[in-house]
């Protein structure tokens, strides 16, 4: 999923300070799972913003809505009935959600309330780790199911570098060396020989080097 973290309150407050009526929009998908921008976080942020404005002796009108999915125009359409009563929109979705709203409601300013972080998996409750960089040309089939693009600090396709020690990356003792993991996994699978095959220089076009990426499924488009 896409992971996110709430922005510092100070930054959020700066964005919305000129406005009296805020439409605070959460999203029921990824940001709900990583507890950054779901219904619950929308409520908490609204409360904090209320406390802030009351302290300053003013009231703001915060309307809380959590959409099923903010990155889909169909769901973003649901804001139509609320939009006229808002001076600004504060979105707690990932960057995709923020932009979907901005594109639909061009006359209202939209501000992000979270920083979108990475595509990650849940390691344990409350801990999310980066697992994919969306390079558009998945290598997991030849790297034992461990991604060197996302998990090696240097994105080396022919690792490990000389900086690994005890299976850890040189950048921090709590970061696993992706290539040590790959090697262990290849060994366990009896695929050691694969290690000596040189992985050729990566074509970065599918990774975004060719400009903004797009998927067109003609069988699905109307």
């Amino acid at each position: 999923m896409i992971t996110a973290e709430q922005k510092p309150l100070k930054e959020i407050i700066e964005y919305i300070s000129p406005y009296d009526r805020i439409l605070l929009v959460g999203c029921n998908e990824c940001v709900t799972v990583c507890a950054a921008g779901g219904r619950k976080e929308v409520g908490l942020l609204a409360s904090a913003l209320n406390l802030h404005s009351l302290k300053q002796g003013r009231t703001i009108d915060i309307k809380e809505i959590t959409l099923e999915r903010q990155c889909d125009p169909e769901y973003v359409e649901e804001l139509v009935s609320e939009i006229d009563r808002a001076d600004a929109i504060l979105s707690m979705a990932c960057g995709c959600g923020v932009q979907t709203i901005a594109e639909r409601y061009k006359e209202k300013p939209v501000f992000p309330a979270v920083n979108t972080k990475f595509m990650g998996a849940s390691q344990s409750q409350g801990i999310w780790v980066e697992r994919c960089q969306g390079c558009g040309d998945c290598l997991l089939g030849i790297t034992g199911g461990i991604c060197p693009v996302a998990r090696c600090s240097k994105h080396l396709l022919n690792g490990p570098c000389g900086g690994t020690s005890d299976g850890k990356c040189e950048i921090a003792p709590d970061v696993d060396c992706a290539w040590c993991l790959i090697w262990e996994r290849l060994k366990a699978l009896g695929m050691e020989k694969r290690y000596e095959e040189i992985m050729e220089a990566k074509d970065f076009r599918p990774a975004g080097g060719g400009g903004p990426r797009k998927i067109i499924r003609e069988d699905l488009s109307l």
């Binding site: 080396l156 022919n158 040189i198 050729e200």
Partner: peptide
Amino acid sequence: GVFDLDSIQLVQA
């Protein structure tokens, strides 16, 4: 960090 190539790919290049 760029790492468009790694050291082995640079040798190849």
